[in-house]
Design a protein around this nucleic acid. Structure first.
Lengths: 109, 109
DNA sequence: AATTAATATCGTAATATTGCGATGTTAATT
DNA sequence: AATTAACATCGCAATATTACGATATTAATT
């Protein structure tokens, strides 16, 4: 019990839900927005910008990175994170496919 | 510990994250897609369509309903659920505002 | 070589989510 | 009035997520 029954859904449903889950946390939204605004940043910038512990920021970055939406490249002692434009555009396609379908109500409610 | 620190984020960040959270489960994606395709449905339809227990479907419907994205109207013994078009469009605005901003990479990575 | 800086990872406590059986509730049916 | 059908809610077990201190790891600096 307690586990999502992924077998019963389509691949697309699981995939979309899992992409949404990555973004469904204010810290990750804030991190993404910061990276977008600043073009790129390092972990410490985010520790200063948001009020979270370094371990916590690092964990959120890991999650964003493993989804592919950001990428990190080692630069000396620090790691430079930025948006992966290709993946970002794939995300857009997925989201737009779902959210921008037209919803016609013609019976009930 | 273990609780999201909502105080440190902007209203918009919290709001967007919370909307995304509602949709970040394959069952709720599947339910929404079914309601959109069929224009409307009752809880039992979903129990048959997906392989989840009635209590589980009812719980997901409650979550969708409390976000405002669907609405339910009592029709005899059953409850007819459908998309709230007004709220759906508000959701679209929020999502598009975030996802469809252009992301320009001009340094790093 | 020792120190410092930036980050990642581990371990853990607190909390949240998921799924479902059991049990209400309400309205139609018999 | 009893039964049935469709839902909602409660309570609980299993699991997942969040946050962070402590502790690596790695590369520049002194």
């Amino acid at each position: 019990m307690g586990t999502t029954k992924t077998e019963i859904y389509t691949e697309e449903q699981n995939r979309l839900a899992s992409l949404l889950k990555v973004l469904a946390h204010p810290a990750r939204i804030a991190i993404l927005q910061y990276i977008i605004d600043q073009k790129a940043c390092i972990c410490n910038d985010l520790v200063d910008e948001l009020g979270l512990a370094q371990a916590t920021i690092s964990q959120h970055l890991k999650e964003l990175k493993s989804s592919g939406i950001i990428q990190g490249s080692v630069e000396g002692k620090s790691v430079c994170y930025c948006i992966d434009e290709k993946v970002w555009k794939q995300f857009q396609l997925h989201f737009n496919g779902f959210f921008n379908q037209d919803v016609k109500i013609d019976r009930c409610c």
